[in-house]
Simulated assay, not measured.
Amino acid sequence: MKNRSNYVIGYKNLKIPYVIQTKTDQPKGLAIMLPGIGYTVKSPLFHFSSGAFLNKGYDVLHVNYPYSSTDYEDFSLEEITSALINDVSKVLNEVVDHTFYKSYYVIGKSFGTMAIPTALDMLPSQSTKAIWLTPRLIGEQVFQTLRTCTQDSLCVIGDKDPFYDIDKMNHIIRNPSIECMMPPGANHALEVDNDILTSIDMVKSVMKRIDDFISLKNGVLNHEL
């Protein structure tokens, strides 16, 4: 596997590093990983998702925004969100403008899902899919995009997640482009509190659903309520 590291100059002239991983000279497409603030690309779901995409012949883009560093300690949540959208846009402009991929997947976790609407606007809609892991449903743009987007998407959120909202999920599952997985008992890490073995099984079941979604060629699977 080859890694290409680079960076863009992002919000307030701060460096935003990114890495492109590849295992083939003729990739099928590009998987764009947008982690959370505390849930990095080395965390289980991103680590295993990266492997799944690489094994299926995709390049993988890790956007490693350093929002936990002291450079951002005085930022409000609103300003960090503005930085996220600005920085992800700059990375995509840099990568997509200098490469050609036939298809795209955008994978966001928690805070990272707040940049998925912007990414979907920037990428060709007919060849782009999205995976929303524990989306911040309190964000109006996140909720409205999930409710109305036409790109095939997978949304995964547990009923013990602080951002879980049954009323909003009832709207989202009506979107025929969205496949929903709502594992009972799952918290914001998509694990089960105080139960290691069940948490391992939970991560495995989510990864199986992600792997199935990547393998899908036409449409989305049925909703899982």
Rank of each mutant, 00 (worst) to 15 (best):
M1A: 09
N3K: 15
N3A: 13
R4T: 10
Y7E: 07
I9L: 12
N13S: 10
Y18V: 06
V19F: 06
I20T: 06
T24M: 00
L30V: 11
P35I: 10
G36F: 01
G36V: 03
V41I: 13
F48R: 09
S50F: 00
F53Y: 08
L54K: 03
K56M: 11
G57Y: 09
Y58M: 03
D59L: 09
V60A: 09
V60S: 07
H62C: 08
P66M: 04
Y67S: 10
Y67A: 11
S68P: 04
T70Q: 11
E78V: 08
E78K: 13
E79P: 09
L84S: 03
N86S: 15
N86H: 14
D87E: 03
S89E: 12
S89F: 04
V91H: 05
L92T: 03
D97V: 00
T99Y: 04
Y101I: 11
K102R: 11
V106S: 05
F111L: 08
G112V: 05
G112M: 04
M114E: 10
M114I: 14
M114P: 00
P117W: 05
A119H: 04
L120R: 04
M122V: 04
M122H: 05
L123C: 09
S127F: 10
W132C: 06
P135G: 03
L137G: 05
G139V: 09
Q141N: 14
V142G: 02
R147A: 12
S153D: 07
D159Y: 05
K160R: 10
Y164V: 03
Y164Q: 00
Y164A: 01
D167Q: 12
D167L: 12
M169V: 14
M169E: 04
R174I: 01
S177H: 12
S177Q: 01
M181T: 06
M182E: 05
P183W: 04
P184C: 01
G185C: 08
A186V: 10
A186R: 07
E191N: 03
E191V: 08
E191C: 10
V192H: 11
I196R: 10
I196F: 14
I196M: 13
L197P: 00
S199D: 06
M202Y: 13
D211N: 15
D211Q: 12
D212P: 02
D212L: 11
K217E: 14
G219I: 11
L221P: 02
L221V: 00
H223N: 15
H223P: 00
